[in-house]
Simulated assay, not measured.
Amino acid sequence: MRTILMSPLMHYVREVALEGSIRRAADNLHISPSAIARQIQQLEEQFGAALFERQPRGMRLTEAGQIVLETIQQFERNAASALSHVEELRGLKRGRVSIGALQTLGEDILPRALTDLRERYPGICFNAYIGNSSDIIRKVADGDIDIGVCWDPGGAVPIERLRVVPIAIGVAMQSGHALAEKDLVSLRDCAPYPMIFPSRDMMFRTLIDRINVGVGSSVTPVIETNSMSMMRRLVRDGAGLVLTTSMSLLGDLAVGKVVHRPLLESAVHTFPLCLFVRSDRDLPLAVKIVVEQFTLEMDSLAAQHCG
């Protein structure tokens, strides 16, 4: 994002850092490479330190350069916030809002909410980032994303929780599976069948492992993956059972390809889905409007998926 409050030199440093090349940065900015090189050299002379390490294959930030880039990025975020606040003072319902959400939410809930918001507030533009919980939490804490919707990180994280919904866990299986006849399924019931688990770097896996340990003879997954879409495909194809939420299977459940049965152990094990913002942030009007919409979406989720 380019803002009128940033100086050309700030744009030069930022673009070279992102591209790793003065030539590519010059192409992007429609300026000569020599002009960028000269400006960066003058800035380095003022700092008395090299900002970039010149390498045969491009430019890489030095430690001093990383500090300068972080300062520029922070200024960029502050500038965007300032412009948004000025527009509020002018009575304009405009702004740009960035949202980070889990892949599951990006396939149904997030598009529906953004479509509704665009109809009611056509002046607001959106940037939707789909990622895992750790990335979303980090980006909100760093100020790169305005709003996060993902699994609650717990612990001392600089975020303000606006809504937390405990989502019940169940067992997903192909239609016609023997366990589909049961109203409630335990992890012991699942033990004789192949199991598919999320990979160990996913927050959802942490809860599954806690449940698994409590079973006595733990279940060993036959497949582990960090892709929820792959897990859904494997369930549809009958490759195994997946411990997940019904929220993750809306499309498959609607067409009857997959069934989802509550997990017995989920009576004491739920996973908290969290709507949050950075804790020390004064939210612009556009962000507040989007937060209100997603609070309603979270209430709807609570009614459908709390078990």
Rank of each mutant, 00 (worst) to 15 (best):
P198E: 08
L83A: 06
E297N: 11
V268L: 14
I22E: 00
A50S: 12
T270S: 10
L29P: 03
E292P: 02
H85C: 02
R210S: 10
E265F: 11
H260W: 14
H177M: 04
I22S: 00
M202N: 03
M59V: 12
G148F: 05
G58N: 06
R94I: 12
L9M: 13
R118G: 10
R278K: 15
W151M: 05
C306H: 10
C274W: 01
A26P: 04
R118P: 03
A17Y: 06
S279V: 15
H177G: 04
I208E: 01
M203Q: 15
R54S: 09
R161C: 10
I36A: 01
G148T: 09
I109W: 03
N212S: 09
L301I: 11
I124P: 00
K288I: 04
L253C: 05
D282R: 13
N212P: 06
H305Q: 12
P192C: 09
A79E: 02
I137L: 05
L102E: 02
R281G: 01
P194N: 08
A239F: 08
A267W: 09
S133T: 12
L162D: 03
I211N: 00
T295G: 05
V97S: 00
P284C: 01
V222G: 03
S32T: 10
G154V: 10
G240M: 01
L283P: 00
S7W: 14
L114E: 04
S246Q: 11
P192V: 14
L241D: 00
R90A: 10
L9R: 12
V222N: 02
I167C: 01
A286L: 04
V259S: 02
W151P: 02
F126R: 07
T62W: 05
G154M: 04
S81V: 12
T225C: 08
D152Q: 13
L285A: 08
L117H: 10
F126I: 11
G95E: 01
A25L: 04
P122V: 07
Q103R: 13
D142L: 11
I22W: 02
C274V: 09
F197W: 09
I36Q: 01
A302E: 06
L18E: 13
M231H: 02
V258R: 00
R236D: 01
K139E: 10
V291M: 02
P272V: 11
R23V: 11
A35Q: 07
V219A: 03
R94N: 14
Q42E: 13
T3R: 14
Y193V: 08
A156H: 11
T295R: 12
E265Q: 06
S229P: 07
F126M: 04
E44C: 06
L89A: 12
L110Y: 08
I159W: 07
G20L: 05
R112P: 04
G100W: 03
R57H: 07
M6P: 03
L162S: 10
E19T: 12
D237G: 09
Q103G: 14
E15Y: 09
H260K: 13
N212L: 07
E181L: 10
V259T: 03
R54L: 14
R278T: 06
M228R: 10
I40A: 08
L69Q: 09
L18A: 12
R120W: 13
V171Y: 02
G48S: 10
A172W: 03
C274M: 06
F52Y: 04
R200K: 11
C125F: 15
G91L: 06
I4R: 13
L264P: 03
L61E: 00
G216A: 06
L301V: 05
K257Q: 14
P56L: 10
Q74K: 15
